[in-house]
Amino acid sequence: MNVTRFLSRNWLVSYAVVYMVLLYLPALLLPLFAFNSSTIIAFPLKGFTLEWFGVLIETKALHKAVQNSLIIALITSAISTLLGILGARAIVRFRFPLKRGIVGLIMVPLILPEIIVGVSLLVLLMQIGISLSIWTVIAGHVLICLPFSVAILSSAFQGLDPSLEEASMDLGETRFGTFRRVIFPLILPGIISSMLITFTISLDEFIIAFFLTGTDVTLPVYIWGQMRFPAKLPSIMALGTILLLLSIFLLVLGELFRRRSARRQGKSTSPTGGLV
């Protein structure tokens, strides 16, 4: 192997390693401070403690926020996945007028600054006179989760062999029967993947929730409120650690289902999850 080539190869590998370390650096600090017995979030670390996790158990307001966030995330993931199934199916299987424009509108929250989504929904709600509740947060979250659902499910539908549907129809199944007995089982992993990922997005979303939350605050909004109090910070680190682990768990699960979906359809997984 020639020397310049060898060097360039190693340069890239080391670059990639440094890049990944930096990408994870902030997240890795979370557990470090969560178990640190000092009340100040700074180095050097003092000692090991579980005190901050204990604080979480005693904080009633936090439990309410967790409950709100879980309800919001659950309903958001169900609605956006349901709408995503319809959208993805239409996009993959049918040609129809104004397709680009319609799909563009559905996908645009992917790139729109979240403050614009939050503010515009807030203005509309104020005008109609709907008061803020967990439902207004859900409305906003479905909007930003929908593009992800559509992307994930589109790749699930893309792997579907149309001849399977034709065979089912030829054998006398109705359109609905075909969907239930042939299509649904094949895209089920995609559906679960979409639900898990949108659940995670909703659980972590702050900006839209900040504008649309009423008195029932979500977890990120609660965390934002606590950040002003330095004394609360260590317990927020503990909370963050739990949330981080939960999110990673959900995402890994989602990824596994996505791969299974691709395998079941006998094609190689699209590494980007159909996002681009």
Binding site: L86, G87, A90, R95, F96, I102, L105, I106, S120, L143
Partner: peptide, 26 residues
């Protein structure tokens, strides 16, 4: 075309009502 439009209309209406309409109000 009809089938495609029917299928896409729920997500489309959602985006229209909760994104396009609010932006117009803004």
């Amino acid at each position: 075309g009809r089938q495609g439009l029917t299928l896409i209309s729920p997500p489309f209406l959602y985006a229209l009502l909760l994104l396009a309409a609010p932006l117009a109000v803004v």
